[in-house]
Structure formats: structure tokens, C-alpha cells
């Protein structure tokens, strides 16, 4: 038990670790609520597209000397609206559209960063996360996004669930299914911005989907998946953070590997249970 002891002793004295811990718990909370919807609706690819397009907004914000987090937020919401809106009004192949948004966002980001004045930007931080650089200002920003995503989803839970389950029936019951769809995408976009800071835009898809997928292997309803994936996400991201601190490894990557190992174990358990049944 040396590892947790060493980590928690350090947390007690280093504010940057306290902020990092708070950031990873915020991420776990949000992923626990949004993740199950992403998993059951099979929206992972879409979430990946929104995540990567965020680089465009961060690049432009950096070029203009503004806060990259605001750039990320604007880019994520715009990407969600483009993908959701196009699906509603144009009957194009959605995968192709997501691929385009994904790649164009990254291309824009790289171009603007290359032209940005001053020293080279911390591209790696955007791609793989910079959880140890979270400060109180960022924490408030992430907390507000997180709370917004969680509250909206829980408030509209019944409607979001109905559209996720059977869109045609929801429409017959008079629900504004198009708007609910775009709303869900926007909530995913908010979560993406929180996660970019914690694990980076390349790795975040694992933290968004794998805890929910693990929960889905062991409980029978989406309502039960939410608390289970929250708890799993919190446990794994704090575990990853502690490991990264103690062994001096990149935190984002370490968290993701913890999540991946847990997913393997969970899949094996679930497979064994199915065989036994």
C-alpha cells in the first residue's frame, strides 16, 4: 500500500495535485452520466470526431492570444451542431461527415499553431492532456461545463432515453426528437472539452466510453450504468493519476492504460459469467 500512501501524502501538500485530483473526479462524474448514452447509442465515432475537431478551436484561440479552453468549447459545440444538423436536414452518410469534421478540425488547429506568434505551442499537451497544469481558474471552467452537462442530461433523462431507445416512437409521442438529438451531441461536446484538459483529445474517447461499457457488462439498465461507470471512472482515473505521480509517468496515458486493463478484466469476467450461465 506504499503507492496510495505516497500519493495521498503528496496530495495533502501539493495544490497542483489537489487540482489534478479534482479535475479527474470531475471527468469521471461527467463521463459516468454521458458515457452510457454514447455507448448504447454507438456514438463513439461521433464523439471522436468532436474531440479531434476541438484542436481547430484551440489553435485559432492560441493564434489570437485567447484562452484555448474557450476555443475548444466553441469548436466542440460547432462540430456537434454541424454533425447533428446535417443529419437532420441532409441525408448524407454520417460517417463521412464525421471524418471530414475530425480531419478539418485538426488541420485548422495545426495551421494556426504553426503561424502563432512566440514559441511553439504545447501541442502534445492538447493531444495527450495536461492534468498537472490544471489551475483553480480552469477547474472552475471545467466544473461549470461538467455541472451543465450532468444537470441537463439528468433533467431531460426520460426524453433522452426515449430518443436513444426508439426515435420513431418518441416522435409519435410528440417529442422534439431532432432537438433532443442535437442536445445530446452538445452535451457530448461539453464533456469532450472537460476531458481534453484531463487526458487530451486523442485519449479521451477511452475515458468517455470504456467505464460505461464496463458498467454495461454487469448491470441491466442504463440508469444503473450511470452510477457504476461514475465509480469506475473515479477509481481508475485517481489510480492512474497516483501511478503517474509516483513513477513519474505522463498522467493521461497512465490513466488510459488503467482503464484499458480494467476493461479487459471486466470483459473476461462478463464472458466467464455468460459461459457459466
Amino acid at each position: 500500500m506504499a503507492l496510495p500512501m505516497e500519493f495521498f501524502t503528496a496530495v495533502a501538500v501539493h495544490p497542483f495535485l489537489q487540482y489534478a485530483l479534482a479535475g479527474s473526479l470531475l471527468a469521471a462524474l461527467g463521463c459516468g452520466v454521458i458515457g452510457p448514452f454514447v455507448v448504447v447509442r454507438r456514438m463513439s465515432y461521433l464523439a471522436g470526431g468532436v474531440a479531434h475537431s476541438v484542436l481547430g478551436g484551440m489553435g485559432v484561440a492560441y493564434f489570437l492570444g485567447r484562452d484555448p479552453l474557450w476555443g475548444a468549447l466553441i469548436a466542440a459545440v460547432v462540430a456537434a451542431l454541424i454533425i447533428g444538423g446535417a443529419r437532420r436536414y441532409v441525408h448524407h452518410d454520417r460517417d463521412t461527415l464525421i471524418s471530414a469534421v475530425w480531419a478539418v478540425g485538426m488541420a485548422v488547429g495545426v495551421l494556426f499553431m504553426a503561424r502563432a506568434p512566440g514559441y511553439g505551442t504545447d501541442l502534445l499537451g492538447y493531444l495527450f492532456g495536461d492534468i498537472l497544469l490544471i489551475d483553480p481558474h480552469k477547474l472552475v471552467f471545467l466544473g461549470v461545463l461538467d455541472a451543465l452537462a450532468v444537470c441537463v442530461l439528468l433533467a431531460g433523462y426520460r426524453a433522452f432515453l426515449a430518443v436513444a431507445f426508439d426515435e420513431e416512437f418518441a416522435r409519435v409521442r410528440g417529442l422534439p426528437t431532432g432537438w433532443l438529438e442535437i442536445g445530446l451531441l452538445t452535451l457530448v461536446a461539453l464533456m469532450v472539452v472537460v476531458l481534453v484538459q484531463v487526458v487530451g483529445l486523442i485519449l479521451l474517447i477511452a475515458l468517455l466510453t470504456l467505464p460505461a461499457a464496463m458498467a454495461g457488462q454487469h448491470v441491466r439498465t442504463i440508469g444503473a450504468m450511470i452510477p457504476v461507470s461514475m465509480a469506475l471512472g473515479a477509481l481508475l482515473s485517481v489510480g492512474g493519476l497516483a501511478t503517474a505521480y509516483v513513477y513519474d509517468m505522463p498522467a493521461g496515458a497512465t490513466i488510459i492504460l488503467w482503464v484499458a486493463v480494467a476493461y479487459l478484466v471486466s470483459s473476461a469476467l462478463s464472458w466467464r459469467r455468460l459461459q457459466g450461465a
Binding site: 448504447v40 433533467a155 431531460g156 426520460r158 426524453a159 432515453l161 426515449a162 431507445f165 426508439d166 426515435e167 420513431e168 416512437f169 418518441a170 409521442r173 410528440g174 417529442l175 454495461g216 448491470v219 441491466r220 439498465t221 442504463i222 440508469g223 444503473a224 450504468m225
Partner: peptide, 27 residues
């Protein structure tokens, strides 16, 4: 053809309850 996946994690009672949508407040 039911417009949903058979492996969607939901119980029968919650499916039937969706018939109540549109009758009262959504929240």
C-alpha cells in the same frame, strides 16, 4: 420492426412507460 436494438439495456416496465411520454411534464 421495432426501431431499437434488442440488447439495449432497459427493462420491460421502462419500455412500456415510454407510452406515457407526451402526456405530462417531461421533467
Amino acid at each position: 420492426f421495432a426501431g431499437f436494438r434488442r440488447d439495449f439495456p432497459i427493462l420491460v416496465r421502462a419500455v412500456v412507460a415510454m407510452g406515457r411520454l407526451g402526456r405530462g411534464p417531461l421533467i
